[in-house]
Design a protein around this nucleic acid. Structure first.
Length: 435
RNA sequence: GAGGUCGUAGCUCAACGGUAGAGCACCGGGCUGUGGCCCCGGGAGUUGCGGGUUCGAGUCCCGUCGACCUCCCCA
């Protein structure tokens, strides 16, 4: 094979594409109902934007971005996530003058140079949802429920063992109280450096909160002996977190408090969360997000609090179609034509051009072959196409101003006058067979 | 970025270091106004790529590219 796709970049064939497309439409439906408005962002931004927003010392910025200099020697980066770009747009377009809250979402590819594995590609799709303008826990819980509603939509009304998604929440504190916890961590762990893995010894200096998230058994043990972050929350943060828990319980949304949950992006404060999917292996976070109240200001914009989340489309799809194969099969079938037009002879082909166009204008999925082949061969094509009905137009039918309609599943067929064709098709497709 | 498993026809996979094969799919015919089933035939490959060892390499060795799994990271 001469050319291969770039590592971590995948082709989406029709059968696969429709599965993603369906989920995107599901997400759009729920987001529109909640009055989120869709936008489109550039795929490239200036490198500096991501350094400033995501954080200079984060892994994403340090070793996972696709960054390069363009022909003008300007440093550009393929977006590794959407929030930074949305904030840039928010400031640049002056969205703060719009009625609040400002609720926007965007769907598109993100790029991270990581080693690919299941559920982790270098180009991957995110459904990114952002909410600007209110500090209320009500809005936060509403947002959490929205995320769960979207994720669970494909499981509604089907016999699937309950909810395949688990919500984990935590609070990182705010600029008031987080530094206290941070210094406690540094102090407590500096004395016990040998009880940390190598990367964590490094993190101690650069990004101590990430140590909480380390999977090394040694670090887990060390971290387990520490005081939890909740001991350091200020009164505001504590009350905020309690309010969120209360509202989650009011809504009967199952959740787990994970005091070790942290994020890989620096801009988060206070509430953060992850939603994990079953059966995904190591890359099991399907959706994640949290508050970033100070990001706009840090980027030179207005002082408006914000919160948001992103759903990993491919990971979501893995959970959905692994647990619901019928849905995938059903979607594949919608790719098949409803009608398959088979003209026999030159006159039929000439007449068919308009007939097919009319049927398509009426909304049917129509395939047509204009080749001079045997009826047998054309029927074989019709069969393989998965079409529901074959429409055969030959000299016999032309004489009578009619057409032969054959149900490819049952094999029954009927000659219908051309004037009655649409009515007949409509009836047959509704009742699923020719009676 | 590190470790492991693996790359053979469009797909799924065979082939002790000794002539690269099967099933499915594809194309044609049996069957020129009727598809699915059946029968017959056909096309298909620089064995991911590049080196090396060997009389001889799909097979062994090295490198490289890619997939998957784990670490890491994250959606």
């Amino acid at each position: 094979m001469k050319f291969q796709a770039v590592r971590g970049f995948k082709d989406w064939l029709p059968e696969e594409f429709i599965r993603y497309h369906y989920l995107i439409e599901v997400a759009r439906k729920h987001l529109r109902r909640a009055n989120f408005k869709e936008i489109k962002l550039p795929i490239l931004e200036k490198t500096e934007l991501f350094v400033r927003s995501i954080g200079e010392v984060t892994d994403i910025v340090q070793k996972e971005t696709y960054s390069f200099q363009d022909r003008n020697q300007e440093w550009l980066t393929l977006r590794p996530e959407a929030t930074a770009g949305i904030c840039r747009m928010f400031i640049e377009q002056g969205l703060h003058v719009r009625p609040k809250p400002i609720k926007i979402f965007t769907i598109g590819p993100m790029f991270r140079h990581e080693r690919p594995q299941k559920g982790r590609l270098r180009e991957f799709y995110q459904i990114d949802v952002e909410f600007f303008g209110n500090l209320s826990p009500y809005h936060e819980v509403e947002l959490l429920e929205l995320a769960l509603t979207i994720l669970n939509d494909p499981f509604q009304g089907r016999e699937v063992e309950k909810n395949p998604f688990i919500l984990e929440i935590n609070s990182l504190g705010c600029p008031e109280c987080r530094p206290t916890y941070r210094s406690y961590l540094v102090e407590a762990l500096s004395g016990a450096k040998e009880d940390l893995c190598k990367t964590c010894q490094d993190r101690l200096l650069r990004n101590p909160l990430r140590i909480l998230d380390c999977k090394e058994p040694l670090c887990r043990e060390t971290v387990g002996a520490l005081k939890p972050i909740s001991d350091f929350w200020c009164n505001t943060c504590r009350a905020h977190f309690e309010a969120i828990r209360e509202l989650l319980e009011l809504r009967r949304l199952p959740y787990v408090v994970n005091p070790l949950l942290v994020r890989g992006l620096d801009y988060y404060v206070r509430t953060i969360f992850e939603i994990k999917g079953e059966g995904l292996g190591a890359q099991d976070t399907v959706c994640a997000g949290g508050r970033y109240d100070y990001l706009l200001r840090e980027l030179g914009g207005p002082d408006i609090p914000a919160t948001g989340f992103a759903i990993g489309l491919e990971r979501w799809a893995l959970v959905v179609y692994q647990k619901n194969e019928d849905l995938g099969r059903h979607l594949e079938k919608t790719l098949n034509p409803e009608l398959f037009f088979i003209p026999l002879g030159e006159e039929a082909r000439r007449k068919g051009l308009k007939l097919v166009k009319d049927l398509r204008d009426s909304g049917y999925q129509v395939e047509a072959l204009y080749e001079e082949r045997s009826l047998k061969a054309l029927m074989r094509e019709a069969d393989k196409s998965g079409a529901k009905l074959a429409l055969i137009l030959g000299s016999e039918e032309l004489e009578k101003e009619a057409i032969l309609v054959k149900d490819l599943k049952t094999g029954t067929q009927k000659v219908i006058s051309l004037s009655q064709l649409k009515n007949f098709i409509e009836e047959v497709l509704r009742s699923e067979n020719i009676s």
